[in-house]
Nucleic acid binder design. Structure first.
Lengths: 197, 197
DNA sequence: TCCCATATCGAACACCATGTTCGGTTTCTA
DNA sequence: TAGAAACCGAACATGGTGTTCGATATGGGA
């Protein structure tokens, strides 16, 4: 708990634990993963684990935050070359690259805890983008937070389906579906051009 | 486990356990509800619980199935007077009536287990309706199962938000948002009239 | 109404995961 | 190279789980 140091040992430990958790989440549900499982997989001592994280959930959250940080960075980077609501195609590509990781979290036996946490963070990100984009005088026939939830849940829904199908489809195809599902509604709501999402 | 009898005692026991679980789910997360909590609330003996259900999850599932049965019955009944994809307004009204129950499941500390199970059953119901409704020659630019997931997840998203807001809005208002979110996309996909959803 | 099958009770039990403690060992870094 | 800090791992207390079993209560058929 006090190991916030840059000490190589600490970093190595946290890395091992995170990797182990992700491996395990591709094998079984989060709830049925035991701290001991993680320790065995990571070759880390019991007390060391509790020196870094208060429990399983804590470790999971730290991993989610990592993934979100990555996506956010990726999204804002892609943004500069390709402004819009959400550089969705780039995101779908990113997901394909980070397959294992994303799979563990969004799809895997990945815990429903994260369906909330992850989806929540995703929603916040989208709402923020929406706000920056809406016409000054937007008459909210549907409140903005709902629209954000709507977009985020559709995005994640497609992601899960994509994984279900073993990612046989290309990012372009998935992105195309995303656009088809989300754009008519957005156009309808905004009653103005919002460009490509 | 063998008490599938119509014996009054069995029914009373199951009823009590179900009620207790729902009460508790309005107070805390499913994961942190203990079998003992349920027993105390329901005034049922420990061994009796295990005579009916193999575990907490099993009890939860049986309750979900009950709710789904109700919604299905309600939906198909409303259907006869008001055909369409989904008698969504009627459903939102039904939800408002069954407030406590629905709240426990869809919103409550209601467990994420059910976000999967419940949403899955809901999706199946919608997909079935969609199939009966689509034009014979429907060119699926987006596969039907995805469309069903899309509709179901939007429906549940609105339900959760409604509960978050203490149900201050009317079923009509919520239904209006639902229509605004879902209809443009459906029309776009079907490229034909599907009537009111 | 009576009788018996069966449901319920509840205490006791074995089991297992959790999170803590602590003395000893290893590893980093200054 | 020395000392601070991280790691190890065995041992422990705690608390929830699911089972067992003999005793008691209750419902339904005759």
């Amino acid at each position: 708990m006090r190991n916030d140091k840059d000490d190589r040992r600490s970093k190595r430990t946290r890395q091992s634990l995170g990797d182990a958790l992700i491996e395990l989440m591709l094998e079984k549900h989060f709830e049925e993963i035991t701290v001991q499982d993680i320790l065995d997989r990571a070759n880390i001592g019991r007390s060391t684990f509790y020196a870094h994280y208060s429990d399983k959930e804590s470790l999971l959250i730290s991993q989610i935050e990592q993934v979100i940080r990555d996506m956010k960075a990726y999204a804002t980077e892609a943004d500069s070359t390709h402004p819009g609501l959400l550089p969705s195609l780039e995101l779908f590509r990113h997901v394909k690259e980070q397959r294992r990781l994303m799979q563990a979290f969004v799809w895997g036996r990945g815990a429903e805890l994260l369906t909330n946490d992850f989806q929540g963070k995703m929603t916040a990100l989208i709402e923020q983008k929406l706000r920056a984009l809406i016409p000054a005088a937007y008459e909210p026939s549907v409140p903005l937070p709902i629209v954000a939830k709507f977009v985020a849940s559709t995005f994640l829904l497609l992601l899960r389906w994509w994984f279900d199908e073993d990612m046989q489809h290309t990012p372009e195809q998935v992105n195309d579906m995303f656009q088809r599902l989300v754009m008519p509604t957005l156009h309808g709501l905004m009653m103005s051009e919002v460009g490509e999402v």
